[in-house]
Design a protein around this nucleic acid. Structure first.
Lengths: 202, 202
DNA sequence: GCCCGTATACTCGGATCCGAGCGATCGGAA
DNA sequence: TTCCGATCGCTCGGATCCGAGTATACGGGC
């Protein structure tokens, strides 16, 4: 069916997004990124950034517009999006929004083997997660409120935080239900699916 | 702080999990995997499987127990977990459950640029997603019910499906709220954050 | 005037990931 | 009997990812 994406790293979407506004060199992208908190939605590492920029270049979605140098520092290559790049940005975005993709979050994988920790072990781990989730939610909520209530940016520009919070809350809810079910015995723990106590937190 | 995991691919967790039960060769693992539907929680590709097994071997968490051959087929190397491997399995599991890790789901990244599609474009894409999510949820629910109500396996063994469904539902809820907010105008769409109509679905 | 920490800007090599491909066997239909 | 598709089991090479490393410049304290 649809052939594999020419650039698959999502960082490429972010780069295209930044370049919609103005041409930039990679290091400036990284700075812009962190400044706007985009690095909570995209995984940014310097290595990947340069690789991704090169991939976009090969695909013809961006182009180098100038190479400058100040003093004896390394050259800075400034990139801009091409018309093709703009089109692809929108098409990619549309596809990502439209189609739920199979993802493999670590927690989902771990839950698959929940039984292996034994009732006590599982409950303890989940309690720790529950506490951590609360902190994450509080922090994200606070940040969001600061930006929106402070009029620093329109709500649309931080809408992804609302999504993230909602998902964290859902996870928290589930985790707490399962803790309760373990404690009350509502979740049956079959024989042989358990662990000698104390084997884990050594 | 804590040094990087020796084996980072989560597939390694699944392999360790399978080997808790009995020694196996990689091809059999792949089969067991699919048979139990583990491949919805772990990303399985043949290449990665062999790489992962090798990594586990290097780390000393599994060991080769025999090499058999039937007829002139390729050799089959059968692996078993080591005591260290069992310990690591539990430790890893515990850590994954306990600590929410930064993940970068595609949808979160895409939502960050929701504005770029314009009100109409964004609403259309989200409507499509909403429909797709409903299907996913229905399918997962049906599967879960078949297994549990049919007594094919204890509920604990398919608990991850409950988690997945819960998360899909949360996402669906959010998506539908945003669609409504776009339609009613409750979500303000700042000037200049829009797209010429028809640019996307070419 | 010198030192040191921070910012600028990118490179590099190794680890990881993955899907196409390969050579063999097996079972069933013609 | 012979062919063909399905299954068995693994290999390979290219793509991707990433963090440590490199090299220069700037600024402020003493």
């Amino acid at each position: 069916m649809s052939t594999r994406r020419r650039v698959s790293n999502l960082l490429g979407l972010a780069v295209l997004g930044l370049l919609q506004e103005s041409p930039m060199h990679p290091h400036a992208m990284a700075a812009a990124f962190r400044e706007r908190g985009l690095d909570s939605a995209f995984k940014l590492t310097t290595g990947s950034l340069y690789d991704t920029v090169n991939a976009l270049l090969r695909a013809g979605w961006i182009s180098a517009v100038e190479i400058t140098r100040s003093g004896n520092r390394p050259e800075r290559t400034v990139y801009a999006h091409t018309p093709l790049g703009r089109q692809e940005f929108l098409r990619w975005l549309d596809e990502l929004l439209r189609t739920p993709a199979a993802e493999y979050p670590k927690f989902l994988s771990a839950v698959t083997y929940l039984g292996a920790l034994g009732k006590e072990g599982a409950a303890a781990a989940l309690r720790a997660r529950s506490a951590a989730l609360r902190t994450l939610i509080d922090d994200a909520r606070r940040d969001h409120a600061r930006v929106v209530d402070g009029g620093l940016a329109p709500r649309l520009f931080v809408i992804e935080v609302e999504y993230a919070v909602r998902m964290y809350e859902a996870e928290l809810g589930w985790v707490e239900e399962i803790i309760t079910e373990i404690e009350t015995g509502a979740l049956e723990w079959p024989q042989g699916v358990a662990t000698e106590a104390g084997e884990v937190r050594g």
